[in-house]
Amino acid sequence: MRLDKYLKISRLVKRRTLAKEIADKGRIEINNRPAKSSTAVNVGDKITIHYGDKIVAVEVLQIAENVKKNAATDLYKILAK
């Protein structure tokens, strides 16, 4: 699954276009490597998102095409906030 779509479905970012902009600016890393919005996300990957002064790191637990709002947090495990 594409990075921008995963961030939207997991609700780590509100909109897919916002996820694309953040990724294309180099503010998202997958496994400590800069990632573009089209980068493939796999189970076990560690995603780090830089929001200004805040850094959020998560590990991908599962990938799903459709997720209900209250089940979105089951897709990842927060490593650092």
Rank of each mutant, 00 (worst) to 15 (best):
residue 43 V to Q: 11
residue 42 N to E: 11
residue 7 L to M: 06
residue 68 K to G: 13
residue 48 T to E: 11
residue 76 Y to D: 01
residue 35 A to S: 12
residue 52 G to A: 08
residue 65 E to I: 05
residue 17 T to C: 01
residue 58 V to I: 11
residue 54 K to H: 06
residue 26 G to K: 04
residue 50 H to C: 10
residue 74 D to I: 00
residue 68 K to R: 14
residue 42 N to H: 12
residue 13 V to S: 04
residue 76 Y to V: 01
residue 23 A to E: 03
residue 50 H to V: 14
residue 44 G to D: 03
residue 3 L to H: 01
residue 68 K to D: 13
residue 49 I to R: 12
residue 68 K to S: 15
residue 64 A to H: 11
residue 58 V to Y: 00
residue 22 I to Q: 08
residue 11 R to E: 05
residue 25 K to C: 08
residue 13 V to Q: 03
residue 67 V to W: 05
residue 37 S to K: 10
residue 12 L to D: 00
residue 22 I to G: 04
residue 58 V to D: 00
residue 68 K to I: 11
residue 6 Y to T: 06
residue 77 K to T: 00
residue 51 Y to V: 08
residue 58 V to G: 00
residue 43 V to W: 10
residue 44 G to E: 02
residue 26 G to T: 09
residue 66 N to R: 15
residue 75 L to T: 00
residue 63 I to T: 09
residue 38 S to Y: 04
residue 19 A to L: 03
residue 17 T to Y: 07
residue 11 R to T: 00
residue 33 R to G: 04
residue 19 A to E: 03
residue 54 K to V: 07
residue 60 V to I: 06
residue 43 V to C: 07
residue 55 I to Y: 06
residue 6 Y to Q: 09
residue 13 V to Y: 09
residue 19 A to N: 01
residue 78 I to L: 01
residue 39 T to I: 05
residue 8 K to P: 03
residue 55 I to N: 07
residue 76 Y to I: 01
residue 80 A to E: 14
residue 29 E to M: 11
residue 64 A to W: 05
residue 63 I to P: 10
residue 7 L to T: 02
residue 60 V to D: 00
residue 76 Y to G: 05
residue 17 T to M: 05
residue 32 N to Y: 14
residue 63 I to Q: 11
residue 7 L to P: 02
residue 41 V to I: 13
residue 37 S to H: 13
residue 31 N to T: 09
residue 17 T to F: 12
residue 15 R to N: 06
residue 15 R to Q: 09
residue 60 V to L: 02
residue 6 Y to M: 10
residue 54 K to F: 02
residue 30 I to D: 03
residue 36 K to Y: 11
residue 31 N to E: 03
residue 11 R to P: 00
residue 81 K to L: 07
residue 52 G to L: 08
residue 8 K to L: 06
residue 25 K to G: 08
residue 21 E to S: 10
residue 45 D to S: 12
residue 67 V to D: 03
residue 34 P to I: 15
residue 51 Y to E: 12
residue 61 L to Q: 13
residue 9 I to M: 02
residue 65 E to N: 12
residue 36 K to M: 10
residue 16 R to Y: 02
residue 40 A to E: 15
